[in-house]
Structures are given as C-alpha cells and as structure tokens.
Amino acid sequence: MTRFAHFWRKSVDGRAAILYLLPSVILFSVFVFYPMFRTIYLSFFLTDQTGNAAIMVGFENFMYLLGSSEFQNSMKATGLFVLYTVPITIILALFFALLANEKLKGIGFFRTMYSSTMGISVAASSVIWLFMFNPSIGMFNRLLSVFDFPQIQWLLDPEWALISVAISTIWMNLGFSFLILLGGLQNIDEHLYESSRIDGAGYFYRLRRITLPMLSPTLFFIITISLINAFQTFGQIDILTKGGPSQSTNLIVYSIYREAFINYQFGTASAQAVILFIIILIVTILQFKLGERRVHYQ
C-alpha cells in the first residue's frame, strides 16, 4: 500500500502532463489517428459498393498498384509537379520578398499586391485560370494569335497540361510563401545590416552573409510546407483537367479521389493513400536530416 502511495506521489508530474495533453490527444485521435488507422485497415480489403470492407486481400492492393502502369505514371506526374512548382515558387517568392522588404514610399501597396493571391480560394482562382487556358476563347491563345505564334492546347495537350497546372499553382502559392518570407526578413535585426554597412559590405555580400543565413529557418519551414502541399495538390487538378489528358495530370491525391469517389474502390484508394503517406514521410525525414544542418537558428 505504501509502495502504491509512494508511486502515486512520485508520478504527480506525469499525471498532470497527461491531463494537459488530453485535449490534443482526444482531438488528434478523432481527426487524425482514427482516419489514419481506418485507411490502413481498408487498404488490405476490397470494398463493396457502399464502401464497407468486404473481402480481405492482404497486400494484393499494394501489389496491384506497384505493378500498374497507371499508378507509376501518377507517381511520375506527382514528382514532376513537385519539381516544377516548389523551387520556382520559393525563388520567386524570395525575390518578391526581398524587393518588398525595401523601405520605400508606398511599399505597402506592393506588399498587398504580392500577397493577394493568398486571399483567393483555390476553386475561384482555378476557374479564372480555366478561362484563360480555354483553347477557343482563352486569353493566352488570343495573345499568342496577336503575335502570330502557333496556338497551344494548354490543358488538352499532354505535353503542356502539367506545365499549365504548375503555372497556375505557382501563382496561387506565391502569396503565402511571399508573406512568410517577408515576415522572416522583417525579423532580421537591423543592427546587423548597419554594422556591415559601416564595414563597407556590398548588397550581395550582405544578402549572402546576413540575409540568407538569418532567413534559413523560415526558408526551411516554407520548403517543407510547400513540398507537402505540392504532394497533396487536388483542387486545381479537379477543376482544370480532371487528371487528363492521357492521365498526364493525374497526381496521386486526385487519383485517390477518383478511385474512391468515382470508382468506389475504397480499398485501392486507401492503399494509394498509404503509399503517399510513406513517400511524404520519407521526404520529410530526409529533409530534416539533410536540410536542417544548414539551418542557422539564432
């Protein structure tokens, strides 16, 4: 008995900690862990038309996916899409943030403009881009014909479709990346620049030696977020191309949606979701292992 009382008294901190963690544990369980385990469970089954697990098939869904050319194509498209969008978005956002960080009259106007895409929902902006890409009446093809360039089938040509979607995605994501990077820039201590200026350092020297190292935690954050976002792109695909033409824009999340809600194959859809989860997990771990070394925390 005394032993128990002893234990009880010693573990008071632990018990308090559990109590404090309880709300987030409950919320995470309901909205993250339960769906996640349910997905993993379903990925081992074939489901009937109402989405209930019907036949246990073990790893057959995974084997089927890994051997299917459609899924390989979808992985390839996702990889390309990440490569097209993430670096360009971040470089552009960094460029705009550096510009907007200068102290000039009316700079607030430009800051507003550069970050404005953040305020437009993916659905709304996709519809606008859809009109601009339209092959018969779209703005881009009109412009091309004004300058006598050959017409481009933006969303209909498999060679162009992914690039077109990437262009619109870069535009959509620019505002958010810009805002985060600008915030990071504003946090850099003014004194650092002042003393380096006294030492006679030029703009690019200061950029390389002060701005980028001091910005590296923000850059690291935005790269991680952008990567994960790019892997999970869905809205613009659904509105602009529906995964076509010839599956060239069938990114993994869209493919999951199609498998689950158009074909009602929740088993294979869940298996795809599990594979996507593993890929993002690996990419993020790699990033933390390799990228974080270069990050300079104050």
């Binding site: 009259k105 607030g108 106007f109 305020g119 929902s121 659905a123 709304a124």
Partner: peptide, 25 residues
Amino acid sequence: MLKSSMFWMLILTVAILTACSNSDS
C-alpha cells in the same frame, strides 16, 4: 498616415477576398 492607410487597405483587400471565397462555402 500613408503607412496606416496601406495597412487598412491590406486588411480590407484580404477581407473582401476572403468574403468572396467564403460566399461559396
């Protein structure tokens, strides 16, 4: 004054834009 008016403009733009996109949802 200019600075604060810019700030309010930003708030306003964001508010309008989110209102637009929110009306959908």
